[in-house]
Amino acid sequence: MRKLLYTFVTLAVIATVSCSKLDNFPQPNATLTGRVVDAGGGKTTIQTETGGGGTRVKLEEISWSDNPTPFYFYSMQDGTFNNTKLFASTNMISVEGAFVPLVQYDNAGNITVDKRQKVVLGGSAQNITFEVEPFLRVEWVSDPVVNADSTITVQARFSRGTSNPDFQNDVSDLFLYLNTVPYVGNNNYDNRYSRQVTYSGSAGNALLGQTIVLTTTGKLPPKRSYWLRIGARTTYGLKQYNYTDIKKITLP
């Protein structure tokens, strides 16, 4: 009986101890929102894809170290970003994606361009805008048209987004993406119907500024909605895509 009592007391002590609060730091409550816009093209946001192939925000926290391990988070596919769970801190913030890099180096490793923004997070939400030059501007020329054979034809155009010759690499791919949900891009498309055109060498450059007609492959099932988007990319660096915005079309 006494043993039982001791056991209960011990357990009670342990239970009480476990109540003590060890995590006495404030929760991350700083908010960073913003968008990446085309510096030249009417300040529209730079369309991207979600995840690894898209635009990402890079935070280098310099509150306590000159040489921090960066923290990344990805932008949404419309080119805006929002993170409400950041710690209060001082950061050098930049974005990486299918546009002229914000930090550039010469051949000797000297920084020649540095458009990072120093931002103190904490308190009220920070809203920042990055003006960048996309490698390619991809645009709709007209609205998608449904053909009699259950395919969709679109007209598109791509052109250089930068006049800096160092970033005018050969155009290598043009892609008409189709998906059955509003999330569409190189990371997320239906490969039965999407249409890819590849250019070897500099062949794609001749099409800059031209109107290009693309048609989906296969026969689309009727009476449902599809989301379409066009992407194009150059051979620069990690070869990420630039995109148009997304158009929805419903087959009769």
Binding site: N67, Y105, N107, A108, G109, N110, T235, Y236, G237, L238
Partner: peptide, 17 residues
């Protein structure tokens, strides 16, 4: 190679001249 990465001490970590 097309990719380049420098560190703060001017070492090119990715890519060869």
């Amino acid at each position: 190679n097309q990719v380049s990465l420098f560190d703060d001490s001017h070492n090119r970590l990715c890519g060869l001249p």
